[in-house]
Amino acid sequence: MSESMINHPHIDTSIFLEDISIRYRLPTERIGTFKEYVIKIFQGRIKHNSFLALKQINLEVKQGEILGILGRNGAGKSTLLKVISKVLVPTKGRVWTKGYLSPLLQLGAGFHVELTGRENIYLNATLLGHSRDEIDEKLDEIIAFAEIGDFIEAALRTYSSGMKARLGFSVASAWQPDILILDEVFAVGDIAFQEKCFDRMAQFRKNGATVLIVSHSIDQIRDLCQRAMWLDHGEIKELGAADQVCDTYQAALEIK
């Protein structure tokens, strides 16, 4: 594959992965406590099975490109996204990214029910790495987008689940990312709010963000992406023009 010929990121590179492997070491028996661990050391009974979640992945994504990622559950899609977003440091290989990545955070994770909406905006946005000044600047926009009105000064425990989700989305998407990661359906709330979510995502794309789309819907990938990647058991099965990869993936699914 031509991908393996690249050995350094270029000026227009957005994401660059070189020979990435992720190895999980799973103990053959689950050792959950320190006590068990010490006992088993003395008995010489600690054995590990290693499991490769990703195997020698090479990939370069250019700025502004829209790449689709296909694959069954457990193929390594989320592991790959974790590597790109700096959550997992690869066991082997090099990961290089440029710019601000949209967070993979479950919406509203890190919210505290006793704090007000406004306080939670600051807490959540600093968790995503934004500074106080950046948040001050976007605060009004975040509140307006979430459509929670006067509730902004009320404790989060008085919010409906829809309000929490809207606030979470509003914070997570307040900043234009350089790399936008769309993991499955990325929309919350009622139909009208979902419409706003999609509009915002479209705006990010239009502004030139690199986009990674993980989806089970082959049609969605065919529609949106120029290029697609098919991951299977931690390896790149195929990487190329979206139409072609979608065809082979679909064919493979039908055989099963």
Partner: peptide, 11 residues
């Protein structure tokens, strides 16, 4: 694009 200069390189 904001923060375009922010580069993460595991190497």
């Amino acid at each position: 694009l904001k923060n375009s200069a922010r580069i993460y390189d595991s190497a």
